[in-house]
């Protein structure tokens, strides 16, 4: 393997990892606050793909992208209101089952509305432009994904550490009940969390599908699970951790494909997950929690 081929694979891996990272942040934030694996997150990401297809039919890309972002945020917030809020005081397993139910519903809804056949993802002309850096060539989206991911993560961490909403989020994730007693409007914080998560999933979906070029009703299921694994790897609840986890998964998967073990690229994710859970269940950047009796 020559150096340029190696670098080319690295670039692909980092780009895939960037998209994973953006989705993983949605999982990690929701888990941090509600202790819920939001199984529907991958399907929100899939729906964002479909929104883009329809938005691009009647609008130019610079109008379509904001529309898709808004629609996805509305969908995410609506799901939280309809399916998770009524179960706020229910056992954790019920909320998780509700999340699986929502995921099931979204997949069936997408099959019904858009048929099970893959639909071509529209090309956004600028993102598809081929760039050449030395011996490496790739479309702009490959270069832009990691940069955009880093920028968004930086912005998000800044928001969480230095704004009032961010402070509220940190408080809620530390102790749900005490935060409520201190006068934090829990429901508002949760809505904002879902809005941010869905927004990032929409950005991730644009970057991911521009490379993949087709959307089908189940295209969110596996990436969704993988991104949850990324979140666990990085330490659930930690945003930089989710980003690092996303990049690790993206690079590892691309490496396996490059080495010719593409059938194992999905299993790799889960092997990594299980190893991580056994060696260091709190993840790379997670805080240690002790169980209270």
């Amino acid at each position: 393997m020559t150096l340029s081929v190696f670098l080319q694979h690295c670039l692909t891996g980092i780009s895939l990892g960037g998209a994973y990272a953006l989705i993983a942040i949605g999982y990690t934030m929701v888990y941090g606050i509600l202790r819920l694996i939001n199984f529907a997150h991958g399907d929100i990401f899939m729906m964002a793909g479909y929104f883009m297809i329809f938005a691009m039919v009647s609008f130019p890309w610079y109008v379509a992208i904001p529309l898709v972002l808004i629609a996805t945020v509305l969908l995410g917030v609506f799901i939280e209101r309809a399916a998770y809020k009524p179960l706020r005081n229910a056992p954790r397993m019920s909320i998780m089952i509700s999340a699986i139910g929502v995921s099931y519903l979204l997949q069936n809804l997408a099959t019904y509305l858009f048929t099970a056949l893959p639909r071509g993802y529209p090309t956004i002309p600028i993102l598809k432009k081929i760039f050449q850096i030395g011996p490496l060539s790739a479309s702009l989206v490959t270069f832009i994904t990691p940069v955009l991911t880093l920028a968004l993560v930086y912005l998000l961490v800044f928001l969480i550490n230095h704004s009032k909403v961010g402070m509220a989020m940190r408080a809620v994730s530390r102790d749900f009940e005490t935060a409520q007693l201190m006068g934090i409007k829990i429901n508002r914080v949760i809505t904002i969390t879902f809005a941010i998560g869905s927004l990032l999933a929409a950005v991730g979906s644009i970057l991911y599908f521009t490379d993949r070029m087709a959307v089908f009703p189940f295209s969110g299921a596996l990436p969704g699970l993988k991104c949850f694994v990324a979140a666990v790897l990085g330490g659930i609840g930690s945003i930089p951790g989710a980003m690092v986890g996303g990049f690790i998964l993206g690079l590892g998967e691309t490496a396996l494909v490059a080495l010719g073990y593409s059938t194992f690229s999905d299993a790799f994710t889960f092997v990594l997950l299980i190893l991580m859970l056994l060696i260091r269940p709190t993840g790379l950047f997670g805080e240690k929690v002790t169980d209270k009796v």
Partner: peptide, 12 residues
Amino acid sequence: DYLAIATLGFSE
């Protein structure tokens, strides 16, 4: 939920 996701991983 960690158990859930780990068994799901094994299944995959």
